[in-house]
Design a protein around this nucleic acid. Structure first.
Lengths: 113, 113
DNA sequence: ATAATTTATCGCAAATATACGATAAATAGA
DNA sequence: TCTATTTATCGTATATTTGCGATAAATTAT
């Protein structure tokens, strides 16, 4: 039972935390950058560009797809991945809302140090 | 040995991924919001505002402190926490740079769907 | 039909993360 | 001094993540 306490927090915080978790591995950040650069990319080419085994890359792709940040289309044997712009922009908004929401509170220069 | 592959990625991606990992738990997001709201806050008050045991909150505070996002000052028996604005703003810049760096590549409306 | 290619998934091992109770350490108050 | 308060840390249990090889499934090429 050492878990599941996440559900005791607000939906908003849970959603953002889940997105941040997807971004918490450099391989997944690298995949997003590669897809932004190449517009679209066959899975094998991503594997070729990352220092990880094929099965590991496939797992990272799965997490990114689950989070809605990328999508894959079957092209014969191959699978062509690309960014899901709609959700990338949602990610942008949610993170910016959170951080700027914090920074807006700064107005007074209070600090305990 | 099932790990440590993170070091095969660029410093930039590693740094951002590490920050995202700190933000990947709703408790830590909630702590940041609480500190932004209250400007500064005794540890016990944070515990009071979170659905977690004292020792668990202490661990989350430790991670936030390690990442430089908060700082604590001893006030007698109590410890007063507050945000480290400098690094909060760095976090803001790094995340915005990353995401907007991706969104900038959108220009052509390519999509594989 | 058979072989080669591509990718997802399974099973496993190891590393990390989460959560808590118990305890230690330090200070304040009686 | 003795007690209460506050917080960090330790130990432990459990869950999750990371990573890989092996294999399965599907498609293309021979």
């Amino acid at each position: 039972m050492a878990y599941a306490k996440k559900q005791h927090f607000s939906e908003d915080l849970q959603q953002l935390a889940a997105l941040m978790k997807v971004l918490s591995h450099p391989a997944r950040l690298a995949i997003l950058q590669l897809l932004a650069e190449k517009k679209e990319c066959i899975c094998g080419e991503l594997v070729h560009n990352l220092p990880l085994a094929q099965s590991t890359v496939s797992q990272h792709l799965h997490e990114l797809k689950q989070a809605g940040l990328i999508q894959g289309e079957i092209e014969g044997v191959k699978i062509c991945y690309c960014l899901n712009w709609e959700n990338i922009e949602l990610l942008d908004q949610l993170t910016e809302n959170f951080i700027s929401g914090i920074i807006l509170k700064k107005t007074d220069n209070t600090s305990c140090s």
